[in-house]
């Protein structure tokens, strides 16, 4: 257990050493960013939209009891930006992207493709790990704000079914209660989630063994550990943000 933690620590330290040293794999990072975004976009759009609709529909009766349905856009905006969008995006990415990274690197490991890269005088850690971790760290925050936007769109659709409202009016009401701290906290959280998902997927894949069984295990562990860590980080981030708010 402690030895495994030490290996994880070494893996993270190696990432921070390699990330600043040339050569920089810019093309591969861009390719991975596209892959991460492309792999998750459809599912994130659908989930974000449905979450917007459902959350609005579920919140309306409670607010209506106090005659406060006008607060609905603000409530949805805050809930989406502070928690729902970062968490949903991270969980979907852990499932789609994390497992894919774990399986891809795992199969490369067991078929000696990583060794082949090393003996052809290429640093496989830099090419495979650094590029993928950077890609998830960059892309998941962008996807988070996209999810929040799509969620607001879903919410608007639900609101428009019951009340007469304009899209611009709805959006401005939604954003009214959002503070600079909310945006910063969500961005930092999404960056952390992205880094965690990429790191877990890469670590599991890069260190997989025992043939095809190991590949399956790497993909599975990438999702389970990734999601678990995302929840832990969410709890910690909420506590820290709360301290800043008070």
């Amino acid at each position: 257990m402690f030895y495994e933690l030490y290996l994880v620590y070494q893996f993270i330290i190696k990432f921070f050493k390699e990330v600043f040293l040339p050569p920089y794999e810019g093309k591969e990072i861009m390719r991975q960013c596209y892959q991460v975004g492309y792999r998750s976009l459809a599912l994130i759009s659908l989930t974000g939209f449905i979450t917007g609709i459902v959350f609005t529909k579920q919140s309306r009766p409670s607010l209506a009891e106090f005659g406060a349905t006008s607060w609905l856009p603000s409530l949805v905006g805050i809930a989406l930006l502070r928690t729902l969008a970062p968490l949903l995006t991270a969980l979907i990415s852990a499932g789609k992207v994390g497992s894919s990274i774990g399986a891809e690197l795992g199969s490369m490991k067991v078929t000696e493709q990583i060794d082949a890269m090393e003996v052809s005088a290429t640093n496989p850690f830099k090419f495979l790990v650094v590029s993928r971790v950077l890609a998830t760290t960059i892309t998941i925050p962008i996807l988070t704000f996209y999810t929040a936007l799509v969620g607001l769109l879903g919410s608007f659709v639900n609101v428009a079914m019951f009340e007469e409202t304009s899209f611009s009016g709805f959006i401005s009401s939604s954003l009214e209660s959002i503070t600079f701290l909310d945006i910063i906290a969500s961005t930092i959280k999404a960056i952390l989630f992205g880094f965690t998902i990429g790191m877990v997927g890469c670590y599991q894949g890069f260190n997989s063994s025992k043939g095809t069984e190991g590949v399956g295990k790497a993909a599975n562990s990438s999702v389970v550990i990734g999601m678990f860590l995302v929840f832990i980080e969410e709890v910690l981030a909420t506590q820290i943000t709360f301290l800043f708010r008070t």
């Binding site: 078929t111 000696e112 493709q113 060794d115 082949a116 890269m117 003996v119 052809s120 005088a121 290429t122």
Partner: peptide
């Protein structure tokens, strides 16, 4: 200066033959 031919070839699955061959060249 050392070429290593692996037992299972270890070709990069996600790349074409051309990209496989270019890979060491582009980096070195």
């Amino acid at each position: 200066h050392i070429g290593f031919s692996f037992q299972n070839s270890a070709l990069y699955d996600s790349m074409t033959v051309r990209e496989n061959l270019e890979f060491p060249l582009v980096r070195n």
